[in-house]
Computed example of a mutant assay.
Amino acid sequence: MRRLLSIILVVAVIFILSATNPERSEYIEWINHKTMDQSSNILEKGILSVAGKTIFDAGTSRKDYFLFSVYKTDFSEMGLGKITSIGIFNQFIALPSSKE
C-alpha cells in the first residue's frame, strides 16, 4: 500500500511540475517587467515599454526539460552580461549573472 501511495505521489508531483512549467512568452514578460522595475532612467523605461519584449525575445534561448525550463538571455554585446533563469511552478528564479 505504501508503494502505491508513493507512486501516486510521484506521478502527482510530475503532473503539477509539467503543468506549471512557464512558457517563453511568460518569461519575456517577466524579464521585461523586472528590467523596467530596476531601471531608474525614464528614457530606458520608455524604450523597454515600447520595444523591450522584442529585444528580450531576440536575445533569449529556452531549454525545456518538461518539468522546468532554463532560460538564458545574452546581453554580453551590450555589456550587461548573461542572465540565466529557471522557470518552475509558474515562477522564475534568476541565477547569479555572469559578466564577461
Rank of each mutant, 00 (worst) to 15 (best):
S40E: 13
F15A: 15
D64N: 13
Q91N: 15
I31M: 07
G59N: 14
S18R: 15
M78I: 12
Y71R: 09
G79I: 08
Y71L: 11
T84R: 12
G59E: 12
I93R: 01
A51Y: 07
S6C: 12
K53R: 14
T20A: 05
I86Y: 05
K82C: 07
G52A: 08
I16V: 15
S76L: 09
L43H: 01
R3D: 14
S76A: 09
T84F: 02
A19T: 12
N21P: 03
E77G: 09
L80K: 11
N90H: 10
L43E: 06
V10H: 01
E26F: 00
I88S: 05
R3T: 10
L5K: 13
S18G: 12
I88D: 00
L48V: 04
Y27V: 04
S39A: 15
K34T: 12
A94V: 10
F92K: 08
A94W: 00
N21A: 07
F15M: 15
V11W: 02
Y65N: 07
T60W: 01
R2F: 13
A12M: 10
V50N: 04
N41I: 00
S39T: 02
A12E: 05
W30P: 00
Q38W: 00
P22A: 04
K34M: 09
F66R: 11
S18F: 11
I83T: 07
G52R: 07
L17G: 09
A94D: 11
I47W: 11
A58K: 14
I93P: 00
T60E: 02
S18W: 13
I47L: 15
Y27P: 01
K99Q: 08
F56C: 01
G52E: 03
K53G: 04
E29N: 13
D74C: 09
A19Q: 15
L9R: 07
A58H: 12
P22V: 02
L80W: 08
S61Y: 00
A12H: 03
S18T: 15
L5I: 12
K45H: 10
S69L: 08
K82I: 14
S69Q: 06
R62G: 01
S25F: 02
I88A: 14
I16N: 13
G52L: 07
L48P: 01
W30N: 08
Y65F: 05
R2E: 15
G46S: 12
N90S: 14
E100W: 03
I7E: 12
T73K: 04
N90F: 12
I16T: 13
W30L: 08
I7Y: 09
L48G: 02
S69I: 06
K53H: 06
A51L: 12
